[in-house]
Amino acid sequence: MPAAHAEKLATLVVQPTPVADELVTDAVVESARQTNIAAQVAGRITGLFVKTGDRVNAGQKLLAVDQRAADQQLAAVRAQAAAAQAELDVARRELERTQFLFDRKYVSQAALDRAKARYQSAFSMTAARQADAGAAAVGPSLHNIAAPYAATIASVDVELGSMAMPGMPLVALFDPAALRAVATVPQSRATALRTDLPVRIELPDVPGAQHWQTAASVTVLPVTDSLSDSVKVRLALPASAGVAARPGMFARAHFVVGAPRPRLMVPLAAVVRRTEVTAVYVVANDGSASLRQVRPGETRADQVEILAGLSAGERIALDPLAAAKH
């Protein structure tokens, strides 16, 4: 191969790299913060302002339930509270007048007792009516349902015009910034986990830079499943993972176990796979590139271990397509 071509070919000198063993287990993504909103009052759905997949802010209105009956009840209760307050005002003035006359011995003790009893009865009635009015005033807030926090709408279980009843599911939502992967680890391997070291989370269905995530925190649940003899490990995903990850998504957790040992690691992009043959382009001192079969081992992110066919100190081409043209 001409020297000019050799200068343009990007290469890498393969050297042993300390890499620890890994335990790879299946996991599933779930939300640590999810809410199923149910109706608290009966009524027809008169407003539906979101759909599945929408992002909403805290306090954003999700739907509305017909509140005409609640408004009528509120008006009636407030009228009763006003009437009770008027009765209390009359009873107070009567008690003051009777007390004034009693102090001057113009009326009997019995008359004063009757005035006090009337006042106490009116006072109790007014307090009860005001409490009823306060409770009725909450009604409109139950008919206008808003998001409790910034979230993604997971499902909308009603349609515009349908009838809602107390306890009926309306909307389900989750916080995309509070996702976690829950991995299942055999009990026999749980003690070998290095939770003090970063745990990598692979999202096979997510392309690009979001394919690999690093757990923000690791929690090994202190309960063993007696049927599967395994433990659950919660791996908090970074808040940025919510852009691509979703609850229910399949994942793999890569736990570090044991101490690092030297391995020959090469970039995945430098490996050529043709049917059953795995190879790399080895670049000689004169710049010529030849295809050599290798035996691959474990893959780590964008790196793959070479178990046989390549020695430390040899140079490989980073771009197989460019090497094939030389």
Rank of each mutant, 00 (worst) to 15 (best):
T52A: 12
Q130F: 01
R55Q: 14
M125H: 15
R92I: 05
K105P: 08
R104F: 04
R104S: 07
M125P: 08
V77P: 00
V107F: 01
V90L: 09
L74V: 00
L112R: 03
R78K: 11
G134E: 11
D54W: 02
Y106A: 14
Q85V: 06
R129I: 05
A111Y: 01
S108I: 04
A79V: 02
A76G: 05
D66H: 03
A84W: 00
K105C: 05
A127G: 08
A76R: 07
T98Q: 10
D54Y: 00
E94F: 01
V65M: 11
L88Y: 03
A131W: 09
Q130W: 07
V56Q: 01
A83M: 02
D54G: 07
R68E: 14
D132N: 13
K51I: 04
R92F: 10
A58Y: 03
R114W: 01
A117S: 13
Q73S: 12
G53Q: 06
Y119F: 14
D71M: 13
Q60A: 11
A117R: 09
E94T: 06
R114H: 08
A79W: 09
A131M: 13
A81W: 03
V56K: 02
L62I: 00
R93F: 13
A111R: 08
V77A: 03
A133S: 09
A82I: 04
R78Y: 09
A70F: 09
R68C: 10
A91K: 03
K61M: 14
A75N: 07
A70Y: 03
A84C: 00
M125D: 15
Y106C: 02
Q67L: 13
A115S: 10
Q60I: 11
V65A: 09
V90S: 07
L74N: 03
R97T: 02
S121A: 12
K61Y: 11
Q109Y: 02
A131S: 11
K105T: 05
A58I: 00
K116S: 12
L62M: 02
Q72Y: 13
V56R: 08
Q60R: 03
Q72C: 10
D103N: 13
A128G: 08
L101P: 06
A84D: 04
A111D: 11
D113F: 06
A64Y: 04
Q73T: 06
R104P: 03
V90P: 01
D89H: 03
K105A: 15
D71E: 15
V90T: 10
Q80H: 11
F100V: 10
A91W: 05
A76I: 01
S108P: 09
D113H: 08
Q67S: 14
S124C: 01
Y106L: 15
Q80G: 03
T52K: 14
G134V: 01
A58T: 04
S121E: 11
D66M: 04
A70I: 02
A86R: 06
D66R: 00
Q120E: 13
R114S: 13
T126G: 01
V107K: 02
E87M: 12
A83L: 05
R92Y: 07
K51W: 00
